[in-house]
């Protein structure tokens, strides 16, 4: 084999992996920019790098400096937590009903879960805004924190159902039969076998819910009224110039999330390895 042939073989063999790594680099490029611009020593707008000012750590010293940014972050975290909790519970119940039970209208139930995922966010936001201002205001519900929570639960619900359903469907029915065979009644079978085995699916559904809720802008923008979430804060301040503190917070959240996921994986693999 000649050298050029060998080189071609080497490249062909790793071609897919090389492309994959390039795509990952592409995914990370804007994150890197967000990080770099958190050190920008800018005068008015953080959109352009200021070549005159030397990079600064100022924005990292007091990330909650700009007015409103802290409240926006807390709102996002609060909405994310409540929406995730409710959507995960309701969605898990729904998934169990759809996989484990026979009932009239099951097909309709599946469609009801699927269609919100096939509906553009802007339509969801517009329709919710319509009903919030033309009906729910009469029962005292004004646009704000709780309307965001309601909307987020609604669009997270379908994703939870799909995730938990997939896990339930891949569960070997023999495991539950084995539990019954080993003297576990219906309750024992559920809590000792079914639930622990479905739990990883429920946890990933919850993580997905939280990240969808935390990162949502379009629906939130429609239903939030005066309340501001972190993405909305960034979007609204874009016109005036986004403070670099937003970059600090955005990048920190990214780092925290990565660390949490890695920690979760390490704990998970520890529990799987021999005691």
């Amino acid at each position: 084999m000649s050298t050029s042939q060998r080189l071609r073989f080497w490249i062909a063999n790793r071609f897919v992996m090389i492309v994959a790594i390039l795509v990952l680099v592409y995914l990370f490029l804007p994150v890197a920019y967000t990080f770099v611009f958190s050190f920008n020593n800018y005068k008015k707008s953080n959109i352009q790098w200021n070549p005159e000012g030397s990079p600064t750590l100022d924005h990292w010293k007091n990330p909650f400096g700009p007015p409103g940014i802290k409240d926006a972050l807390l709102t996002s975290l609060g909405v994310g937590a409540i929406a995730t909790l409710v959507a995960t519970v309701l969605g898990t119940l729904l998934a169990f009903a759809l996989v484990r039970h026979d009932f009239r209208g099951k097909g309709a139930g599946n469609i009801l879960v699927f269609v919100p995922m096939a509906t553009p966010e802007i339509v969801l936001g517009a329709s919710l805004l319509t009903i919030f201002v033309q009906g729910f205001n009469q029962v005292g519900l004004t646009l704000g924190f709780w309307t965001i929570v309601i909307a987020h639960i609604m669009f997270c619900l379908s994703f939870v159902v799909v995730t938990v359903k997939a896990r339930l469907q891949s569960l070997d029915p023999r495991l539950e039969e084995a539990a019954q065979d080993l003297y576990a009644g219906p309750g024992g079978t559920f809590w000792r076998v079914t639930f622990p085995l479905v739990l990883p699916g429920i946890v990933s559904a919850a993580l997905l819910s939280f990240s969808l809720s935390f990162d949502d802008f379009i629906i939130t923008n429609f239903v939030s009224g005066d309340a501001t979430t972190f993405p909305k804060f960034v979007y609204v301040s874009y016109l005036r110039g986004i403070p670099a503190e937003a970059n600090v917070i955005g990048f920190s959240l990214f780092v925290i999330a990565v660390l949490l996921v890695i920690a979760g994986q390490v704990v998970g693999s520890r529990r799987r390895s021999p005691a």
Binding site: D172, R174, L175, E177, A178, V193, P196, L197
Partner: peptide
């Protein structure tokens, strides 16, 4: 059981 059905957790 066939294929044992051991509890993986």
């Amino acid at each position: 059981f066939q294929s044992y059905a051991l509890f993986p957790h």
